[in-house]
């Protein structure tokens, strides 16, 4: 019994990684109907920036701000940097090709992905980089028969806090309603007085920032990062957003969590070597039987 509970908690941990990355895909898709293939690389770049702050700035920052200060500085620095990178990529790689239709934008996104990946490789080198191991005290916590680490609890708390905040903004505020309205019908949204460019700005800053924060959490959880990891995480997060219903923000969160839990349960009870296979079987099944995803809307309109 405790194995299944532990696997569910492990699944929720990696599921929240997928969910946070999936949000970036889904928000951009919702507003622009563009699959931003560079998003996985935003995540990687954020991870590397956080790594640099933690490794090279650590002595300075822990001296001035303490351990937690250094950690928060890394998260904020990576988040803000990637928000800026997101805006630049939108401006340089996507905005010029919007008028040409959806397919050129996808190709441009793949190009941006390759460019970012190679920039990271040139900047930090092609080898794995090791995240500092001693940042978070290696405290183990026993809850009944369930075994947890302090790091895991912190990751879950931060992830759910971020998701909860975004959920609140999108579902409960008027600006959130504006985002959903824009996703549904840009032209009519602009008639409401919504400046579509501001909505685009929002999704292209918040999405990459969330990706960057996730990159740091992944680095701390697995202790090592590589310049190609954005591809794998990006693909799984994309699967998560399709599973939840792409363009749907609560759907991306739900899809990510479900995917993480299924992957961990599959790894524990079937075969760890096949865990990626489960993920993509799920993607194929969703695409066959429910292409709109779990929370995706049917697009029936009254005339």
């Amino acid at each position: 019994m405790h194995v299944i509970l532990e696997q569910i908690i492990n699944g929720l941990t990696i599921g929240s990684f997928y969910a946070l990355i999936a949000l970036g895909y889904s928000m951009v898709y919702g507003v622009l109907k563009l699959i931003n293939f560079a998003h996985g690389d935003f995540f990687t770049l954020g991870s590397y920036l956080g790594y640099t702050v933690l490794v090279f700035g650590a002595a300075f920052m822990t001296a001035h701000f303490g351990l937690w200060g250094a950690l928060i500085a890394a998260l904020v620095f990576a988040g803000v940097s990637l928000a800026i990178v997101g805006l630049i990529v939108e401006r340089v790689a996507y905005r010029p090709v919007y008028p040409a239709g959806r397919l050129p934008a996808v190709v441009s996104a793949l190009g941006a992905s390759i460019f970012l990946q190679n920039t990271i490789m040139v900047g930090w080198g092609p080898r794995f980089q090791a995240y500092p191991a001693t940042l978070i005290p290696n405290v183990h916590i026993q809850l009944g028969s369930i075994h947890l680490t302090l790091l895991q609890i912190m990751i879950l708390l931060l992830s759910f806090a971020l998701m909860g905040t975004l959920y609140y903004i999108v579902q409960k505020t008027t600006f959130g309603a504006a985002i959903r309205a824009t996703a549904h019908d840009r032209k009519t949204a602009s008639l409401m007085g919504i400046n579509i460019n501001k909505v685009i700005l929002f999704v292209f800053t918040l999405g990459p920032a969330l990706g960057a924060v996730t990159g740091i959490m992944v680095g701390m959880y697995y202790r090592q990062i590589s310049f190609t990891m954005g591809w794998n995480y990006g693909l799984k997060a994309f699967t998560a957003s399709v599973l939840g219903g792409i363009g749907n923000i609560p759907g991306a969160m739900l899809g990510g969590l479900i995917l993480g839990v299924l992957e961990m349960l599959g790894a524990a009870y079937i075969s760890a070597a096949w865990k990626d296979v489960f993920v993509f079987i799920i993607l194929i099944l969703v695409l066959i039987f429910r292409p709109t995803g779990i929370l995706g809307e049917k697009t029936a309109e009254k005339v």
Partner: peptide
């Protein structure tokens, strides 16, 4: 052109955006 996945009240609030 109402926003079908938004509530009536959310639609009205957007009108006053």
């Amino acid at each position: 052109r109402v926003f079908p996945t938004l509530t009536v009240e959310e639609n009205l609030n957007l009108g006053a955006y």
